[in-house]
């Protein structure tokens, strides 16, 4: 952990410049039946910053991400992305917002019936009038950007998990998005490849000044890439702050998460293990 704290702080972080937030969530609440998934979530994400949404499994991270991506409409509260209210936006407005975004899904979500090259070229073919030769060239470049070359003609099932994830990132980058979403970038990957993906995110941040939103429960990776973090637990935001602020936060649940302490007096966990 000590290594992570040494990440050099930038001179002036995006959230300190006092501009309008690019994404703004107010009072967001989500229920599935009787179960509260998110409750009264407030969050601002500024242009050019890397926001990591952290929290234990089932805390509502992925649901929050779906709302930020505009894939789900909020029933309670509001989500504004680049000035557009997702809840009341028309279809055309939603399409405009979505074209600002690139999303890399947890399961990579590559289309298995198409080659990797066609997958990456898909947004270009659908949304631009570029010539086929230009599209092929751009596809090659995007794949090179994520460290994959010569895989254009392979099918996604022929790639390893890490390669698939990088290919899905190449697809997300195809239209040069302003906002990049990353759902569990290192889930199911070995530590070396996971570290490689962290590097990739840092490089994208440096090179393109993208706004990057990452959902993860990997603390090390989170502290490496984050400008700010949002700590979720049981559907509520416990804290939003820089890595240092989260590291030194006094909330018991955050301390527990940061220091990897298991739930001690959780009867359900106990009965699960003992079988009673």
């Amino acid at each position: 952990m000590s290594e992570a704290t040494q990440t050099a702080p930038e001179q002036r972080r995006p959230h300190e410049t006092g501009g309008e937030p690019l994404i703004s969530v107010r009072g967001l609440g989500v229920r599935y039946g009787d179960r509260k998934v998110l409750e009264d979530v407030d969050l601002d994400i500024y242009k050019g910053e890397t926001m990591v949404i952290l929290g234990p499994s089932g805390c509502g991270k992925s649901t929050l991400l779906r709302h930020l991506e505009g894939l789900a409409k909020p029933s309670v509260g509001t989500v504004h992305v680049s000035g557009t209210d997702i809840g009341t936006a028309s279809n055309d407005e939603l399409l405009r917002v979505r074209r600002l975004m690139g999303v890399s899904f947890q399961s990579a979500a590559m289309f298995n019936s198409m080659t990797v090259g066609d997958n990456v070229a898909l947004p270009l073919r659908e949304h631009t009038d570029l010539a086929e030769s230009t599209i092929l060239l751009m596809t090659k470049m995007k794949l090179q950007q994520v460290g994959l070359s010569g895989v254009e003609d392979l099918y996604p099932t022929q790639l390893s998990g890490g390669m698939r994830k990088r290919a899905s990132l190449a697809r997300a980058l195809a239209l040069d998005p302003e906002i990049l979403f990353f759902d569990e970038p290192s889930a199911g990957l070995d530590p070396i490849i996971a570290a490689g993906i962290d590097e990739l995110i840092l490089r994208l941040k440096e090179a393109f000044r993208m706004t990057i939103i990452v959902v993860t429960h990997e603390m090390e990776s989170a502290f490496r890439i984050a400008d700010r973090m949002c700590m979720l637990d049981q559907g509520t935001v416990l804290a939003v702050g820089t890595s240092e602020e989260i590291l030194t936060h006094t909330h018991p649940r955050i301390r527990q998460f940061v220091q990897r302490i298991p739930d001690r007096h959780d009867e359900s966990a106990h009965s699960y293990i003992t079988g009673f």
Partner: peptide, 16 residues
Amino acid sequence: TMVVTEEVDALRAMAL
């Protein structure tokens, strides 16, 4: 299968 593997979400996220 496309829904389960998030491919449909991916389409929507690509504004398709």
